[in-house]
């Protein structure tokens, strides 16, 4: 259960004190009890609460609920944070597998961040996620990204992400169309 720690309680001074002296207060809107996520959805991360500058505005002093021996304002807490992890890319390549070696992939890399000559590298297979290993074969296309991961809680980590492209399978329509186009080209090229 997420809890509101004393930092929040200080905003409730004058409204009422928990007679037990316990800094934990369960203050909620009754409607939230119908929330399928339960009462937890009314609480925010402690660190987020401590950063909230306008928490006073969230206190609805007209609506109160009796939680035992004292009355307390209902605090309509802001929606749960939708903040997610963000990646700041420093370098991006498109690559393809030239050859599958014993424990590595010989790959050709095309720099998508800065122009310049293509590069080659041997990437150890252990750098490829288990999910993507089934996609490894000559000609398979992947993207390689190096950058910073900014997590929702403010942590910054340097990361490398290699993801193989999940291209759809060839359909009969596509292959039939290619054969028709080949016949058309043979007619139209105008070989001597």
């Amino acid at each position: 259960m997420l809890i509101l720690k004393p930092k929040l309680a200080q905003y409730e001074e004058g409204i009422g004190q928990d007679p037990t002296g316990d800094p934990i207060k369960l203050i909620t809107d009754p409607e939230s009890l119908l929330d399928p996520k339960g009462i937890l959805s009314c609480f925010r991360n402690v660190e987020e609460e401590s950063r909230s500058e306008n928490i006073e505005e969230n206190i609805d002093r007209k609506r109160t609920i009796n939680l035992g021996e004292f009355s307390s304002p209902v605090i309509r807490l802001p929606a749960i944070s939708r903040r997610s992890n963000n990646m700041a890319s420093l370098q991006k390549w498109q690559g393809y597998v030239i050859k599958v070696l014993n424990e590595a992939l010989l790959v050709r890399l095309i720099d998508l961040t800065h122009k310049g000559p293509d590069e080659e590298a041997e990437i150890p297979i252990e750098e490829i996620s288990q999910d993507d290993r089934g996609l490894i074969r000559p000609g398979a296309i992947f993207y390689w990204n190096i950058g910073y991961l900014d997590s929702y809680n403010g942590q910054r980590t340097r990361i490398s992400v290699i993801r193989f492209q999940r291209l759809p399978a060839w359909s009969k329509e596509e292959i039939d169309a290619a054969e028709r186009e080949a016949e058309r080209l043979q007619q139209i090229i105008g070989w001597k």
């Binding site: 296309i141 291209l167 399978a169 060839w170 009969k172």
Partner: peptide, 13 residues
């Protein structure tokens, strides 16, 4: 090298 139905697309080797 001509792709077959159901084969995953890739760069032509």
């Amino acid at each position: 090298l001509i792709p077959q139905v159901g084969e995953t697309k890739r760069r032509v080797p």
